[in-house]
Design a protein around this nucleic acid. Structure first.
Lengths: 226, 226
DNA sequence: TCAAAAGTGTTAGAGGTACACCCATGG
DNA sequence: CCATGGGTGTACCTCTAACACTTTTGA
C-alpha cells in the first residue's frame, strides 16, 4: 500500500444562537505551534477504530465539553499547503447546539474554549476561516429548506424567538404574519399549554418542534421550504 | 504527530448521458484483491503534492482516459470497516461529462473501464454502491437549482434533448411548453442559427448555454430553479 | 394608562400548472 | 400525403408578498 504521508483530521464548526441576534461559533485557543495562541476550530486526529463522526464528537467533548444536538459533514479540505507541518486533510463537520448546552467546560487539549460572534471573529489558524465561511453558507442555505433552525433553540420556544433566529441567519427582515402562517402550515409544531412571561409585554405561547412527525412526513415526500 | 495509519483515497462518480433516457456511470474492473474482478469507482491514492481535485482527475485519466467537464466534491466516507485492508477514508467526487467525451481509453491500472446504466449496475466493490446512491441523490437534487444539466449535453443541443435529460433525471414527465418557457425565462440560452435534422420530423433549433452570463448573473444573486 | 411585545386577515399580483393544435421535414 | 418530432398561447388557480391594528401583560 503505497502512499505519501497524508494525515487525516476532523474539525467542527459548531454554531450557537444567542437571542436576539447573535450567531455564535465555538473556537479553541491553540496551546502549541504551529499557530500557537491563535484561535482555531475544535478538532483533531481520528482514532483508527472510531468513525469520523465519533472522532468529531470525542474531540469536541475533550476540547470544549460540549455535545452537539445536530451534526452533519460539511466538506473536506485538502490543499497541499493548508498545514505547514505536513499534508493534512481535514474532514470538516457542521454542528448545532441548543442554548442550554452553551456552557463550556474545557478539559484536555485546549487552553481555552470560547464562543465568538460570527461577525466578530478573531484571526484564525490554518484555513479555518475558509471552513467557517463554507459552514455559514451551508447554514444560511439549509435553514430555508430543512427545519434545522430548531436545533439552535431550546425545546420550548416562542414564535418571536424563531422569527428572530431566522432574521439573524438570513440577514433580512421577515414579515411576522406571513412567517407564522407558513411555519404553521407545515403542521410540525405542537402548541404547548404554556406561556413565557419575561420582561414586559404580552406573554408568548410556547411551541415544540415535532421531530418524529417531520421524519415520517419526510419519507412520504413532504418538503419544508422557507 | 500521533496518528494511527489512516490512508486517504479519492473516488469519482462520473455521470454520462445517452439519449433519450440512459443515465450512465463510469466504472472500472478491479485487477487486484480485495474485490478482484469486481466493478468499482475509478479512484486511488492521492499524491502528497497534488490537491484532491488533481488527484481525482489524474486517476480518472489514468484509469479510464476520460476528462470530466464538471467536478465537485461529493462526500467523504470513513467508516472504519469500509476497506478490509486498512482504515481508508475516501473523499468522493461527483463528475459530469458531455456525450462527446464518452469514449474510453483505459491505460494503466484498470483492466477495463466501462459505462453502465444507472439502473443496471453490477455488484460493486467496497461501499461504492453507497457512494453512487449519494451521488445520484445529489445529481437529482442539483439539476433543479443549478444549471448543471448542460454539462451532460454537448455544447449545441436541442430543447427536446434537454427535456429528455430532465425527464430521465427527475423520473417524471415534464410539460414541454412550461419547461421551455421556464428555461428561456432565465435568459441563459443563446439560440443558434442552426438546426439539427436527423431522423424524421421537423428539424430542431439548436441552443447553447451561456456559462459566462450565468456566472455574472450568479454574483448579482440570480437563481436558477427548476 | 402607558409601554412593550404577541397575535391576527385580507387583498392584489405573480407565478405555476394544465392543456391541444399547427408546423416543418423526409420518405 | 403521411408519419414523426418540433414549436407555440391561454386560463385558472395557488401561493406569495404587502400591509396595520388589537390584545395581553407588567410597571
Amino acid at each position: 500500500m503505497k502512499q505519501g504521508h497524508i494525515f487525516l483530521t476532523v474539525d467542527a464548526v459548531v454554531f450557537g444562537y444567542e437571542a436576539p441576534d447573535n450567531l455564535l461559533i465555538l473556537l479553541i485557543k491553540r496551546g502549541v505551534d504551529p499557530y500557537k495562541d491563535f484561535w482555531a476550530l475544535p478538532g483533531g486526529f481520528v482514532k483508527e477504530e472510531e468513525s469520523l463522526e465519533e472522532g468529531v464528537e470525542r474531540e469536541l467533548q475533550e476540547e470544549t465539553g460540549v455535545q452537539v444536538d445536530y451534526l452533519e459533514q460539511l466538506y473536506s479540505f485538502g490543499a497541499p499547503d493548508r498545514d505547514p507541518r505536513a499534508r493534512i486533510v481535514s474532514v470538516s463537520y457542521f454542528g448545532l447546539i441548543k442554548p442550554k448546552g452553551l456552557e463550556l467546560k474545557p478539559s484536555t487539549d485546549a487552553a481555552e474554549a470560547q464562543w465568538f460572534r460570527v461577525n466578530k471573529l478573531p484571526e484564525l489558524a490554518f484555513d479555518h476561516k475558509l471552513i467557517i465561511d463554507k459552514a455559514i453558507s451551508r447554514l444560511r442555505a439549509k435553514i430555508t429548506y430543512e427545519p434545522i433552525g430548531f436545533e439552535l433553540l431550546n425545546e420550548k420556544f416562542s414564535f418571536s424567538e424563531l422569527e428572530n433566529l431566522y432574521t439573524t441567519l438570513l440577514g433580512r427582515p421577515i414579515d411576522r404574519r406571513n412567517f407564522r402562517k407558513k411555519i404553521l402550515s407545515f403542521g410540525l409544531l405542537e402548541q404547548l399549554d404554556e406561556q413565557r412571561k419575561e420582561g414586559p409585554g404580552r406573554p408568548a405561547s410556547l411551541f415544540k418542534f415535532q421531530m418524529s412527525k417531520y421524519k415520517s412526513y419526510q419519507k412520504n415526500g413532504l418538503y419544508f421550504e422557507l
